[in-house]
Design a protein around this nucleic acid. Structure first.
Lengths: 175, 175, 175, 175
DNA sequence: CATGAATGAGGCTTCATTCAT
DNA sequence: CATGAATGAAGCCTCATTCAT
C-alpha cells in the first residue's frame, strides 16, 4: 500500500501495477494475491487514505473546548496532515477523481468523515447555513480545505497564515 | 472538439482517440491532422473550455450595478453555464487534473479568468480578505463554485437555491 | 529529385514522402503526379545517381594515355565525386540495399557502368585476373571503391593519400 | 533470435515485430519481455552475428603454419560460414547498414574482429600496405569478402574457385 | 496540373492479468 | 503463498496514397 502511494503520487493512476509491485519489493504476480484487481487496490487505498485523513483531523480533539476551537483544531490537523504527507494527499486527490472508485467506496469514504460532519453540524447550527443540507456544507468545507492545501503546497513557508486565513473565511461562512 | 467533449465526458481522459474520431465522424488518422497529439487535443480543449467558462460567467455583466450585484451576476452565469452544459463542465473537470495539461496551458487558463479575478479584487477590497493574496482568494472561490456545481448536478431541482446559498456564503467570506 | 536526395541522405529511406515534397516546395499530393509510387521515385533516383556516378567517373577520360593512367583517372574522379557530393553518395548507398529497387533497375544500373567495366577489362587483360568473370572483377573494384569512400569521409584530410593507396592496391590485384 | 534471423533475411528490417514473434512461436507481447525495443533486438542480433562470423573465421586456425596459410584459412572459413548460413549473412548485411545500430554496437562489433585484424597486421607487415592505417586495410578486406560472398551466393557451384581468386587478389594487395 | 485534407491499414509498444513452477 | 514469464488486447501514431476542389 505505501509503495502504491509513492508510485501513484509520482506517476499518477496510470502507473503500471508492475511498478507498484517492484517498489513494494514483491513480484508483479504477488500483487494480485492481495488485490483482485488494480481497481480493487485503488478502492482499498482510497478508503485507507480517507480514514487516515479523518483520523488525523480528529486526533487529539479538545473535547471540552468550545465548538470554534474544536473545529479549528480539526482544520489545523487536517491541513498539517496533508502538508506533512504530500504523497498521500496527492494520491488521494488522484483517486478521488478516478472512475475506478466505486459508488460504494465513495459512500464509505463519506461515512469516514462523519466525525468531521458532526463538528460542522454544531458549527453551523446557529449560523446562516443552519438550514442548508449538511452534505452541501461538508462539500463546501472540503472544497475550501483542498484549495487551501493546494495553495499551501506551493507556498509552504506561509502554511500557518494560509490555514488561519482560510479557517476564518470558513467560519464566516458557517457561524 | 465537440465530439471530444462528449466522449471525454462519458469515458474520461482514457477514451481512445479512435472513439473521439468516430464520434466526430472522421477517420482515426484524420484526428491527427488537426491535433499533433492526444495531449495537444487536451490542451486545446482545456483552453477553449476555460475561455468559454469565463466568457459565460462575464456575459451581460451589469457594468453600472454595485459590486455585489455584479459578482452575483457572474456567479449565477457561471453556475448556469456549468449546469446547462454538464458535459463541457465534466470534461473541463477531467482536463483540469490531467498531467497532460502543460504549465503553459494552465497559465493561459488563469489569464482567461482575469475578468473574474478583477471582480473578486473589488469585492474583497474592504473586507476581511483584503490582504490575502488574490490568487488564494480566486482559488477559494473556484473551489466553492466547483463544489456547488457538483452538488447542483445531483440535485438540479434546487439549482437556484444552492446557487444563492453558496453565493451568500462566498460573500460572507469576502466582504 | 534533389530534394529527395537531401531528405534521404539525412533521414534514410524511411523518410516520409511528405517530407520530400515539402523540401521540394510542392504539396504532398503533387509528388504523386511525377512518381506513381514511392518505390518508383526510388528507382528513378537510383538510376539517376548511378548514371551520374558513372558519368563523373568517366568525365575527361584521357583517351590517349595508357590504361593505367586512364583507370587511375576514372578512380580519382569517382572518389572525388563521391566525397564532393556526400549526400548523393549516401542516398545511393541507401538505395543500393533497398528492396524497392527492382531487378530491372539494378540491371540498368549495371549497364550504366559499362564504360567503367571496359576500362577494367583492359586493365586486367594481361594480369592475374584475366580469366575471372568480368562481373566479379567489377564487383571487387566496386567494393574497394565504396570502402575507400567510406574511410575517406571519416578522414577527409587524407583523401588524396587514401585514394592513391587504394588504387595501388587495386592495381596490384588487377595487373 | 533465430526467428528474427529468418524473418529479417526474407523481409528485411522493415519486418513487423509481430512477424518475428510469430515465427518464434510466442505472442507479440512476449518479444518485449526479452528485448526492450525493436532496435534493441537489432543491436543484440548484430553483435551475436558479428561474433559468430568472427568465431567461424578463426575456428581451427592452424597456429603453426605460416601467415599466408593462416590468413587463407581464416578467409576460407569466413566464406564457408557466409555461404553456409546465407540467412545469417543476409541479416547481418541488413543490420550493418541500419541506423538502429548504435555507435557502441558498431564499436563492439569491430572489437570482435580483433583476431582477424591481427592476422592482417602480420600479413601486410612487410608488404606495400605496411604504412597504411590498419583500419583501412581491414575495411578493404571486408569489402572484398562481402563482394566475394555476394558473388558466390549467385554462383555457388564455383564457390571454391571464387574464394581462391579473391584471396589471391587480396594477397597481392597485402603482401 | 496543383493542392492538401482525408483515409485507414499497420506498426510498435504497454500492461493488467494468468498460471505453471 | 511467491514468482515472473507469457499473453494478447488495445492504444497512439505514421504515412503512402487518393481525390474533390
Amino acid at each position: 500500500m505505501s509503495a502504491a502511494i509513492r508510485i501513484i503520487a509520482s506517476q499518477g493512476l496510470g502507473a503500471a501495477t508492475a511498478a507498484i509491485a517492484q517498489e513494494a519489493g514483491v513480484s508483479n504476480g504477488s500483487l494480485f494475491t492481495y488485490f483482485e484487481t488494480k481497481a480493487d487496490l485503488f478502492n482499498q487505498l482510497y478508503l485507507e487514505l480517507k480514514a487516515e485523513t479523518a483520523a488525523a483531523a480528529l486526533d487529539g480533539l479538545p473535547a471540552g473546548s468550545d465548538i470554534r476551537k474544536q473545529t479549528f483544531h480539526m482544520w489545523s490537523q487536517w491541513l498539517r496532515w496533508a502538508t506533512s504527507y504530500p504523497e498521500k494527499r496527492r494520491t488521494l486527490a488522484h483517486l478521488s477523481v478516478s472512475d475506478d472508485i466505486t459508488p460504494e467506496s465513495r459512500q464509505a469514504g463519506h461515512q469516514t468523515m462523519a466525525g468531521i460532519a458532526k463538528l460542522l453540524e454544531r458549527s453551523r447550527e446557529n449560523g446562516p447555513m443552519r438550514d442548508v443540507p449538511l452534505g452541501f456544507v461538508v462539500a463546501l468545507m472540503n472544497a475550501l480545505a483542498d484549495a487551501t492545501i493546494d495553495f499551501t503546497i506551493n507556498d509552504p513557508a506561509n502554511a500557518h497564515k494560509h490555514s488561519m486565513t482560510a479557517f476564518d473565511a470558513l467560519w464566516r461562512m458557517l457561524a
